[in-house]
Design a protein around this nucleic acid. Sequence first.
RNA 1: CGCGGGGUAGAGCAGUCCGGUAGCUUGCCAGGCUCAUAACCUGAAGGUCGGAGGUUCAAAUCCUCCCCCCGCAA
Length: 302
Amino acid sequence: MKVVFMGTPVFAAEALRAVAAEHEVVCVYTQPPRPAGKGYKLTPSPVQVTAEELGIPVRCPTTLRTPEAQANFAALQADIGVVCAYGLILPQAILDAPAKGCLNIHASLLPRWRGAAPIQRAIQAGDTETGITIMQMDAGLDTGPMLLSESTPITATTTAAELHDRLMTIGCRLITQALNHLPQPIPQPAEGATYAAKLQKTEALIDWAQPAEQIERTIRAFNPVPTAYLMNGAERIKVFAAELAEPTTAPAGTVLDDTLRIACGHGTSLRLTHLQRPGKKPLPADEILKGWTLPKGTNLAV
RNA sequence: CGCGGGGUAGAGCAGUCCGGUAGCUUGCCAGGCUCAUAACCUGAAGGUCGGAGGUUCAAAUCCUCCCCCCGCAA
């Protein structure tokens, strides 16, 4: 089939690779190159890099609301659109342009976790499983009928990094299946819909008033991006992993000992096990403790 | 020229401002103690201080250029 692919991050780039392996991808839409990295250099999206590698034409419109943009899209005369973490709202005219509409690869078991950050929110909420859903896009936010889905477990140690990679693999497999067989879409259940709000930078600052269990989940959900962190004075310390520790009566945020054990809300505590100081590499606690520690008695919640 | 931090024994760090050939923790090796140990004691090995120039009687430390890593920001 003639496919138009729309996506931006690595997750989508792999999906593009999978689709292109079995179908004719006539054009790729992605976000324009943005300043990034040390030199603030314009950096093309992973999808753009992959598309160029595959020799597929790339378009980077900043909006799809204009008649010209929609006409350009329709002129491709694609059979179907595949959308995966694109980052632009698709107007009805775009959704309707391909003969078979547009399919979306979504990283959750719909209708749970519709929206921008399904992987992270599932971990943060303590879900024990999540998955990939392939759906037929409609006007709503991730509300379209579902063609295929597959679940995968979330354990007590699953990080967003790991889950992302696992879901990416599943996503590639399912989108290929969906394109090849075009299963009959079934409507999403009316019950159980939740929304995965976009990650805010401010959420990454650890709130010590929360119970240790909740903080630990957030740390896993935010690893590797945006990465949970704490402030030690002016020093911003990134936290990649932690484990639940013994109860305490100390106020939340108190550094309880010299081995990175910190008091959390409701009398709980957490021991940081993998962290990164500014300008340094991420290190396991036993390594970093050879030359540095958080001073006992410090209150990080201030 | 977006802003900033850093590269010193296998690992993690101090020392750099106020030049005088390097120190701490840990690891490693040998020995001791112990019922035993990731515990303790004793001893030993291990570093062209990121690279190249320059200043100096003398440079990890001051000056110039280069390489590499990282944070912010997107």
